[in-house]
Amino acid sequence: MSEATGGIHMEEGGGGKIKKFLYLNRKAPYGTIYALESLEVVLIAAAFDQDVSLAFIDDGVYQIVKGQHTKGIDVKNFSPTFRALEGYDIEKLYVEKESMEARSLKETDFLVPVKVVNAAEMADIMQSQDVVLSF
């Protein structure tokens, strides 16, 4: 715990503030490191008992597409980690419908259960958060 929280011991239970954190994933999984390092933040955040959601928009929807093969570019395929999120009680995953459809993807193409929402609903989800971390 102390490593995960950078040596700071957070208050637990009633004394700690619980905020709504949204991790907004906008970029393709490979080509840049943003997606991988975003997922690293999400995993650490799980230790803080906050109210966590993930959203995938634009090329970010590719991060959770099934059947990723990265051997050809010699980069680690980190997509299986998304399946582990459930074990951290991170179960609110949203995909923007417009981004999904623009890329000819369907809900069954994703490797984790997601809720597909339109752009207006996504805006409401963002509006309801305390902290939005956009990568």
Binding site: E3, G6, G7, K19, F21, V41, A45, Q50, L133, S134
Partner: peptide, 22 residues
């Protein structure tokens, strides 16, 4: 140098967390 927990903590303790980047 410290862990990512410091970022989450900043999110919890600040009134606003403002991101600068692409």
């Amino acid at each position: 140098i410290s862990g990512l927990g410091q970022l989450i903590e900043a999110g919890i303790q600040s009134d606003r967390l403002v991101t600068f980047g692409d």
